[in-house]
Design a binder for these strands. Structure first.
Lengths: 206, 206
DNA sequence: GTCTATATAGTGATAGAC
DNA sequence: GTCTATCACTATATAGAC
């Protein structure tokens, strides 16, 4: 209902960019205002507090991240192909939101209140658990059917998660260390995606 | 030469604990002083600036991390067993310094000057590159000998790195989410170590 | 070496003019 | 809706007493 005015939108964009690269504490409302091309007071006019502004962005991002998990198993494929497809989609989404994993983890690790709130949300909202159970059932069935080797779903999930997000969390360092231009960076990311897929699928071989 | 007085040591310990859990910006010298049981001015007396204090801890930690990589290949084993052994040692070291990966990555990602300095150090100090080459040669030989399947050393390295540090970076969240007591946490970590080893060794199978 | 007191600067946030 | 001015607060850092 409260349609975004141009200025409000500019502030949101500036804040998002800054929070993503430097984190919450390292970003000041003055800096956000400067980047948005307005006065610092206006930031507080629209969002009252810095914390509010951050939450708005943070939650929106978390939602989009979650929505990505909701993608269901593509039909007409065997499990291995379907998993390959879904890992690829997940990886691509994170690639399109390169800085998101770091920001989320950074805030959840350094800020105990946010961590508390996040875990509370995961624990109370049945949607997340249901989604996990669905994946878990799928894995168990494939194991029983002998299509993949025995593995705990939590382990598999953590493997995929680790290999995906570490690529992007370390990217700012990697980029600088090897002086990657954007084309070289793109290639590097493609390679990591390949490698991740290979590793996980080999892991699952009976 | 400048032997640590008790107070100085207390300040160092307090600072280390706080920097590790909350990061640089979220930690104030006042808080460090409180935790160390002294006045805030004393922190500045010993280390002059907060940045100085941080660097001292940060560099010491990075050095110990690096020293861990220096461990040479245990003799009298074939490559696979030796790699398993070394991955285990690396994992155990990180476990003994659970919060280190997050702090290092956090500072290198959010603070571009520190990132610059870090990359400069890696690039100019021949020791690091030499260490990498050594590992690279080892891998190539094993590939040629047909003992392991073809893989790029950088990919293998990144796989091991990702699976190891993600375990510990996400630990504060995981711990809270599943209400792990210290025994359950220990078990979880043991499992992740097992899983990491399995995954990597399967990845290398011809 | 350790303290109190304080200088200086920056922060988030609000009041009020336009 | 957007600005200037300003408040209250906290931070780092230093000066100076003991």
């Amino acid at each position: 209902m409260n349609r975004n005015t141009p200025k409000e939108e500019l502030i949101l964009q500036a804040a998002e960019a800054l929070f993503l690269t430097k984190g919450y504490t390292n970003t000041s409302t003055t800096e956000i205002a400067r980047k948005a091309g307005c006065n610092q007071a206006l930031v507080h006019y629209y969002f009252r507090t810095k914390e509010n502004l951050f939450q708005q962005i943070f939650i929106k991002k978390l939602m989009s991240l979650f929505a990505e998990f909701m993608k269901t198993r593509p039909a007409g494929m065997d499990f291995t192909e379907s998993l390959r497809e879904r890992m690829g989609m997940y990886f691509d989404f994170i690639e399109a939101n390169k800085q998101l994993p770091f920001m989320v983890i950074n805030e959840l690790v350094t800020n105990s209140e946010r961590r508390q709130a996040f875990c509370e949300e995961l624990r109370t909202n049945p949607m997340y658990m249901q989604l996990y159970r669905q994946f878990d059932n799928e894995i168990r069935q494939e194991v029983v059917a002998g299509h993949i080797c025995p593995i705990d779903t939590a382990d598999l999930y953590m493997d995929i998660f680790s290999l995906t997000i570490c690529t992007f969390i370390t990217l700012p360092i990697y980029r600088l260390l090897f002086q990657l231009d954007s084309e070289a960076e793109r290639q590097y990311i493609r390679r990591r995606k390949e490698e991740l897929t290979t590793t996980i699928l080999k892991r699952l071989r009976p």
